[in-house]
Structure formats: C-alpha cells, structure tokens
Nucleic acid binder design. Structure first.
Lengths: 193, 193
DNA sequence: ACGGCATGTCAATCACTGTTGACTTAAGCT
DNA sequence: AGCTTAAGTCAACAGTGATTGACATGCCGT
C-alpha cells in the first residue's frame, strides 16, 4: 500500500514553491467550501496538497491568511457577466434544484462564502468580500439608479436558495422538482424585473 | 465582588432538577443563536445557567443532545398561523429591512436556524427540524397540491433575506431602504402567488 | 433524626488543532 | 564538485473543549 501510494504520485513534484503554494490554495478552496472555516484542519489541507503543515505558515502566515487568500481566489465575479439576463431565472432555478453534491464545482465559490457566514473569524472578511465581489458586480449588472438596493434583494434570494439546497437531504424529483424550478424561476424573474 | 455575585443570585436555586434543566436549555438557546454550534462552549452555557458542565451531560447526554433539544424548543411554527397572507409580503419585507440587532428576540429562533445551517454537525439535525417545523406548517399554510415544493421556495427566500440581514453591516436608510422593501415585498408576493 | 438517593461539584483525561523552531534535503550557481 | 540557500520535514508545545468518573451535599421519606 505504501508502494501504491508512492506510485500514484507519478512525479512527487520537484521542489517548486509556486506549485506547492498553488496546490495548497487549491486544496484550501475545496476544503473550506466543503467544511467551512472551523471544520477545516490545516493538516487536512496539507495532506490534500501533498505537503507538510508548516509550509502553510511559511506561505500564508497562518490559517486566517490562507483563508483570506482562498476567499479572493475562489471568487470570480466575471462569471456573472457571462450570465444571460434572459435565461438567468430558469438557469439559476435549475441549478438550485440540483443536489448539493452534484455540480459542486459550479457553486464551490458560493458554498465557500456561505460556510464562512457563521464564523466570527471570517464574518468580517466575508462582509467585505460580499460587498466588493458580489453586490457591486451585481449592481453593475443590474444597472440603474436603484441598483444597490436591488442587488441586495437579488443577493438575498440567491443566498437563500443556496442555503436551502445546502440543507436539503433528499433530492428533488418528478413533479416536485418541476414545481420548484418553476416557482423559483418566477421568483428570480420578479427580482430582476 | 464575590459578595456582589452571591447577592445577585437572590435564591441560589434550591436543588431542582427541572428548574436547572430549564435554565440550561434557556441559556443554550441564547448562546447557540448568538454564536452558533461550534463557537458555543458547554462551559459558557453552564456558567450562564449557573451550574456545572457535568449536568449538561447528565440531563442532555452531551452537546449534540442539548443542541437538538434547544432546536426543538426554539422553534415556534405557531407564529406562522398568525401571519395574514394579504399583508405578509410587506410585513416580512419591512422586517428584513430592519437592523440585525433590533428585535433580536423576535428572530432568535431564526438566527438559531441559520447558524446551524453551515456546520456539518448540525446540518442533518437542522434538516429534520426544518422539514417538520417549517416546511410542513408552511405547506399547510399555503395549501394546495404543490404545497411542498412551494414551501421550499418560500423557505429559501425567507432564509435568504435573513442571511442578508445577518451579514449586512450598515443599516438601510432613505431611498435605498424604500426600494429594498418594495422589491422584497414584490418578491414575496410572487412566491405566494 | 437519619439514611439513601437525587442533585450538584470538581478535577483529570483525551483528542484535536494551530503554531513554532530546529532539522534535513534537494536545487542551482560558481 | 562544493557551497549556499530555498524548500520541505519533523516533533513538540500550548491552548481549547467535550467528556467522564469519582466525590460531596442537600433534600425527602421513614
């Protein structure tokens, strides 16, 4: 088994600070998104990145530093611009109807944000991030004078569906799923209107 | 100061298992709502309840048991029935526009819910509670065949606004507040329709 | 009054986690 | 090749928090 483990790692990664740093960051993004700030151990991240815990301190200063950087790296508001305002309601509604585990990559950054919402350590960081990287872009996307307030509403609804999906246990199926998507789409429609 | 502390507690509570249990539960509800599951220490709860940590184990089995019970005790779906379906959208919208700290008592149970949503330990417990004590009553309130799916949507939107308010930093004022309330009300209107 | 049991207290244990400094090893340059 | 330095490893530390069992004490029935 030890041999297998060694074999799996074709190239044990020649000493490369940048690559290691990137690996840590990637692992951190995934772990933080999956388990939240509190339930993510630095040892887990290090193991996933294939390196030692001490390197996290060296490269990121500590857990909070790593989190902050992962937060920045995890959020790509550019993706917002790719959304088509016409199909947005139904697309998002369908996404929200999916299982919490499926399409995790799509929503990793949001899960990330969400899981950060309840830790006192991360709440302040989150607030800034949401403002800069969520509300502002959404407001811009919406346009108009009342963009700020309307962005808040959109953000609220968006987050709400994320949470609902997060705590949902049994997947939505059949008629229930249809109705859910339909109503959710109608809701987003109203928000955008 | 020691004297003062003693004096504050007029009756150090004669030995009464029920009263102690209730005190613990009350303290737990407040603490869990304020700080979430992870950041609430049993010692804090015990201190607030004026007893020893070990009693928590005796009466509730452990932290998780205490949480489960606090979750049940914290939820009062009866309040739903008091809501008037006609004025619901605007009432709720106005409530959501309020400051996160004001009217904390009103929303303690929801804070509680919210803080539990993002912890892996409590998410399953929460799921059951939400299903039984939130979705079911809402579904009943909404009525109709598609009540279940529509209840999910309402719950999602509701929770979303709660979160938004929770992480909001500056209070909403003036025109922004007006627009927010208006848009939020319209959203709830759509959900109920 | 007194003995037994419920109630409450105390301190130790155990597991976990972030942090840290000393140590080892590989890479790259002269 | 040999040396220097960055890159990576290791083990220990310190703080925390839940859990636990042994112990003390007040209450109630006899």
């Amino acid at each position: 088994m030890g041999d297998a483990a060694v074999l799996e790692r074709a190239a044990p990664r020649r000493r490369d600070a940048d690559a290691t740093r990137a690996a840590i960051l990637e692992a951190a993004k995934a772990q933080f998104a999956r388990s939240g700030y509190d339930h993510t151990g630095l040892r887990d991240i290090a193991a996933a990145a294939g390196c030692d815990v001490a390197l996290i301190k060296r490269y990121f200063g500590g857990k909070e530093g790593l989190f902050t950087e992962a937060l920045k790296a995890s959020f790509h508001p550019d993706r917002l611009k790719a959304w088509d305002r016409a199909t947005f309601p139904r697309d998002v509604a369908a996404m929200m109807a999916g299982s919490p585990h499926a399409a995790e990559a799509q929503t990793q950054s949001f899960q990330f944000l969400l899981r950060a919402a309840t830790s006192p350590t991360t709440a302040p960081l989150l607030n800034v991030a949401v403002q800069e990287r969520f509300l502002a872009p959404i407001g811009e996307w919406l346009g108009g004078d009342e963009a700020a307030a309307r962005a808040r509403v959109l953000a609220a609804v968006f987050i709400g569906f994320l949470v609902e999906r997060l705590i949902r246990e049994a997947p939505l199926t059949g008629r229930e799923r249809e109705v859910f998507v339909e109503r959710a789409a109608a809701t987003f429609e109203t928000v955008l209107k």
